[in-house]
């Protein structure tokens, strides 16, 4: 009762008066380091990047404000258009594969299998190992001369000549998709597994009593109840994959013939190597408005759920 009265009295006064309460002041004081860190480490670099993307700045020179000039120029840049296409192919394929395989893996891990906890722990390995190190191993596995993958496939008689993993435009895209899927799959599987474990057992028992088969149980119980988790994981993964750098940079540097050039690798080349930081920032921020809309819609959907 006392707390209700307190809330009512606070609401009755002008909002500034809240600051007079010592506990409110302490509250603001306590969150101020976090706010400060957010401002310095997130807001400032972001606002700066937006500002730079609206200028024709090159390294070491101030540059002029050119409104959306960089973005409009990029739309006429053939290499950039190819980069946009590559980024979408890369992101959509990897997120779809990770989602599909993630659900399957989570369902398997949710069964009573021997050494279940050990297997669950091992599944996380690709996610735990530093990306640059694991991708270097993949680079060796796809090496044009010494590819162990080719060696095994040839030995097993599955292929008759070496697959040019990183040398052919199509295979190079396949290679980076494979590695990204391998790397991101544990995050999907473990998140889905956590979601699966929260689904009440009674629902399945009731379905069994009604005579529903496993697939119908999955379709009508598991999937709908897993949907919020899938939505969040897919959202995060989409953002991360659009911003991915390490896998492509280490495996292909965006090649061959720009076949795997994506936003981050192109932004790196243009901004840091060629020194056009205005244009480079525009490349990395190009998808920001679209992603922002997706994020808002997804979050709204999640709140409704």
């Amino acid at each position: 009762m006392a707390s209700t009265a307190n809330v009512e009295s606070t609401q009755a006064r002008p909002w500034l008066s809240r600051f007079r309460k010592p506990e409110a002041l302490t509250g603001y004081f306590l969150i101020s380091p976090a706010v400060f860190l957010m401002l310095v480490l997130l807001a400032y670099p972001f606002v700066l990047a937006v500002w730079i993307s609206l200028t024709d700045r090159v390294l070491g020179e101030p540059g002029k404000f050119i409104w959306l000039g960089n973005f409009l120029k990029l739309l006429q840049d053939s290499l950039f258009l190819q980069t946009v296409w590559n980024s979408f192919v890369y992101t959509i394929s990897t997120v779809f594969l990770k989602m599909l395989l993630g659900v399957i893996l989570a369902l398997l891990l949710n069964q009573d299998i021997p050494c279940r906890n050990l297997v669950r722990g091992l599944i996380l390995m690709p996610w735990i190992v530093p990306t640059s190190l694991s991708v270097l191993t993949w680079l060796w596995m796809f090496d044009s001369l010494f590819s162990v993958v080719n060696y095994i496939l040839l030995g097993a008689g599955l292929i008759s000549k070496k697959v040019p993993w990183l040398g052919d435009p199509l295979w190079a895209m396949v290679s980076v998709i494979i590695v990204n899927t391998w790397r991101g799959l544990p995050f999907f599987a473990v998140s889905f597994l956590a979601g699966l474990m929260t689904i009440p057992r009674e629902l399945y028992e009731a379905a069994e009593v009604d005579g529903a088969l496993r697939f119908r149980q999955f379709w009508h119980i598991t999937l709908p109840l897993l949907q919020p988790v899938i939505a969040v994981v897919v959202l995060f993964s989409t953002i991360w994959t659009f911003a991915d750098f390490q896998i492509v940079y280490i495996l292909t540097h965006g090649g061959p013939i720009n076949a795997t050039q994506i936003f981050a690798t192109m932004a790196y080349d243009v901004a840091l190597v060629a020194g056009r930081i205005g244009e480079g920032s525009a490349i990395s921020l190009f998808l920001f408005p679209a992603l922002l809309v997706v994020i808002i819609l997804m979050l709204k959907y999640l709140r409704r759920e």
Binding site: D143, S144, L145, F146, P164, W165, L166, G167, D168, A172, T252, H253, G255, P256
Partner: peptide
């Protein structure tokens, strides 16, 4: 050979040393 399309800066060193 088709390999050269995927070569990075260290590939030719490795190929030469492997007598390929």
């Amino acid at each position: 050979t088709e390999d050269v399309l995927s070569w990075d800066d260290s590939s030719n060193n490795r190929a030469f040393l492997a007598e390929a």
